[in-house]
């Protein structure tokens, strides 16, 4: 009895796999590249246009200064705001449905942030880090909805993944940078500047030399120079962070978008689904990295040096 059912389900799997393979092969042969190899004409409904990639976001409305990535960013914003707005109406002590889901996200984020940052600083970092994460992940996942990059107005795609517009990662990177420096000053006051301009040891060494203690002063001189150099490195690292933030997200998301477009062009059926799944995962990972690195830098900025 069970053996029979087992054989039945096995048969189903075999048939399904065969069907999927057939769809891959048919769609490949029917598409532009495949038909060229075989030497036949491409089938009309498999003839996907070759991807055209422009790094700059397109403007679907030629008379309006609105890019398609802006529209996507607004959609992400609206989705996030809508979820939180609806989910926090009539909050109940015993959560259900959407409230429960949002509480899950918020609590997970709070635990993730307060674990390294501690209760007090965690409360500072929480809104920015969480919003960065949610915005990036929303941008990535919203752009997986069918219609993105394929629906066109005036020959330009109406919607395009917001993370593939360099302006958005750059804006997030600047926000991250500004908040990290702000938290640094908030936690340490004006002495936070010592992270970047550390003249103290050199000054000490010079004073020792001029007061006659030449041996100790000469030793301290090197330390002083090293401290100043470390400060310069710190400045550079804080600035370069913004670059790496920007291009990490932009590069990953753009590569993903191009990959999906190329797969759609080569094998229009079945195979792009796998890349969709991967893109969903990478979107989450990139959001995690962006939020997590902001958290890490923030922790480093407020950390007390011994």
């Amino acid at each position: 009895m069970t053996g029979k059912r087992h054989r039945g389900s096995l048969l189903k799997i075999v048939v399904l796999t065969a069907a999927l393979f057939a769809m891959i092969i048919i769609s490949f042969i029917g598409s532009k590249v495949g038909s060229g190899i075989v030497g036949s004409e491409p089938v009309s409904f498999l003839d996907v246009e070759a991807p055209k990639y422009h790094p700059a976001p397109e403007r679907p409305f030629s008379n309006l200064p609105i890019t398609n990535t802006m529209i996507t960013a607004w959609i992400s914003t609206a989705v996030l705001f809508g979820l939180f707005f609806i989910g926090t109406r009539n909050m109940k002590l015993v959560p259900t449905g959407l409230q429960n889901f949002l509480e899950l996200i918020v609590e997970a984020a709070a635990n993730f942030i307060e674990d390294p940052a501690g209760e007090k600083h965690g409360r500072w970092f929480f809104p920015v880090c969480t919003t960065i994460f949610l915005f990036v992940v929303a941008n990535a996942w919203v752009s997986l909805i069918p219609g993105f990059e394929t629906i066109s107005i005036h020959g330009e795609p109406l919607l395009r993944s917001a993370n593939t517009d360099l302006n958005i990662p750059a804006a997030l990177a600047v926000v991250s940078f500004c908040f990290v420096e702000y938290w640094g000053f908030k936690a340490k006051g004006i002495s936070y500047l010592k992270t970047f301009f550390h003249f103290g040891p050199l000054w000490q060494a010079l004073k020792q030399i001029f007061t006659g203690n030449i041996k100790a002063g000469a030793g301290g001189l090197l330390n002083g120079v090293v401290a100043i150099f470390a400060g310069i490195l710190e400045i550079l690292s804080h600035l370069i962070r913004m670059m790496s933030f920007t291009f990490r997200l932009f590069g990953n998301m753009t590569a993903g978008m191009i990959l999906v477009m190329i797969m759609l062009f080569l094998v229009p059926w079945v195979l792009p689904t796998i890349f969709y799944g991967m893109e969903a995962f990478f979107g989450f990972v990139q959001a995690m990295i962006f939020g997590g690195l902001t958290l890490g830098f923030a922790c480093a900025a407020v950390m007390e040096e011994e």
């Binding site: 707005f85 918020v106 919003t131």
Partner: peptide, 18 residues
């Protein structure tokens, strides 16, 4: 524009969500 958009989102989520 994106900067302002993000800051608005940050404010909205902070006050209506978090």
């Amino acid at each position: 524009g994106q900067l302002i958009n993000f800051l608005i989102l940050l404010g909205l989520l902070t006050f209506f969500g978090y």
